[in-house]
């Protein structure tokens, strides 16, 4: 709120005031009042009216500027009402009341939607756990009857992977995520992901080269397994011709541990590399592989940022793709040990 615009807004009031003063002035002249008295009257008129206008201006300025400032400072602008005092002047009270009503109705709406979302999340989680039962029965039945061949195994694994993707999508989109951070052995996690993808790797003749990794990181092991699974799935999906490999190594830095997953697949075109973590982005490579959903890396990135890990990707088209995940070494935990 600035003075110039305020005065512009009050222009008609000011003009009427001036007009009335001018009429009084003419009357005073007409009644031949002494010039000194006219000057005193003029002076009093000017002082009182200026004080009235400026008083009104500062009162409103204080109220509105306070709101505007606070709105700019808050990351959730709708909380602004909590930061201001209820104004004393009539107009301000109305504005305050309006803001209050709007806010209340919006909060009720948001709560309702949050509740629905949470219900939906719970339902999806429950549903996925339910589906895993018949899936487990199916895979055991096929296995016991010696029907579980390479083809069926791969179909079952696809089913499992897609189910899990939904589960983690729901988890990563939700504010109240249920992760559990503890010290885990990186080598063990890689082993689990390796075994999980063993059939796919062997059938696609992709060599799984893992350097001896004797490092521990702070993370949620299930989440990290899911993230690595997405990366390895991609490497298998986008492999290139013969002698394909996935190489996993880790670098132990002073205050970080960097896990690197590198493949010699088809790589990612330069124009696409910045977009790969975006939701439903499939890009050039998505046209080659029909089953690309564009969700895997998006969810992986989302989970990483929740866990406080940094995930990066670099690639040269037709040569390699290198994904790295950086874990912070937490000195706080070391002190606790």
């Amino acid at each position: 709120m600035n003075l110039k615009d305020y005065l512009k807004d009050k222009l008609i009031n000011i003009l009427i005031l001036l007009l009335s003063y001018f009429i009084v002035f003419l009357l005073l002249i007409a009644f031949k009042v002494k010039i000194s008295l006219i000057l005193v009257i003029t002076f009093i008129f000017l002082i009182t009216n200026t004080l009235l206008i400026m008083g009104d201006y500062y009162k409103k300025k204080k109220f509105y500027n306070n709101i505007l400032n606070n709105i700019n400072k808050l990351d959730k602008a709708y909380l602004v009402l909590e930061t201001i005092n209820k104004p004393e002047f009539y107009e301000g009270k109305i504005v305050y009341q309006i803001l209050y009503e709007i806010n209340k109705s919006m909060c009720e709406n948001v709560n309702l939607i949050e509740e629905q979302l949470l219900d939906f999340k719970d339902y999806i989680e429950m549903w996925i756990h339910e589906v895993k039962r018949p899936l487990a029965s199916l895979s055991l039945t096929l296995n016991n009857n010696k029907l579980l061949d390479i083809k069926l195994k791969s179909i079952l694994k696809n089913l499992e992977d897609y189910l899990e993707q939904v589960l983690y999508y729901v988890r990563c989109e939700n504010a109240a995520s249920d992760y559990y951070i503890k010290e885990v052995d990186l080598g063990n996690i890689i082993k689990n992901v390796g075994i999980r993808n063993m059939d796919d790797l062997l059938n696609n003749k992709v060599d799984f080269k893992v350097e001896k990794i004797n490092l521990k990181v702070y993370t949620d092991s299930k989440w990290l397994e899911f993230i690595l699974n997405q990366i390895i799935n991609n490497s298998i999906k986008y492999k290139k011709g013969k002698n394909s490999y996935i190489k996993i190594s880790a670098i132990d830095n002073v205050d970080t541990i960097k896990l690197i997953i590198e493949d010699n697949g088809i790589g990612i075109p330069k124009s696409d590399i910045k977009e790969v973590f975006k939701k439903t982005f499939t890009g050039e490579n998505g046209r080659i592989v029909p089953s690309a959903t564009g969700m895997g890396l998006y969810i992986a990135k989302n989970l990483c940022s929740k866990l406080g890990h940094k995930i990066e990707i670099e690639s040269i088209f037709n040569e390699y793709t290198r994904v790295s995940i950086t874990f912070a070494k937490n000195k706080f935990y070391d002190v606790l040990k």
Binding site: K132, L135, A136, L138, E160, L167, D178, Y180, K182
Partner: peptide, 21 residues
């Protein structure tokens, strides 16, 4: 399949924890 469930089971005295399927 959350780490939380697993940690609870282990703390209650389970020797291992396997998730379906």
């Amino acid at each position: 399949n959350t780490d939380m469930d697993e940690a609870l089971s282990i703390s209650l005295g389970a020797d291992d924890y396997i998730t379906k399927p």
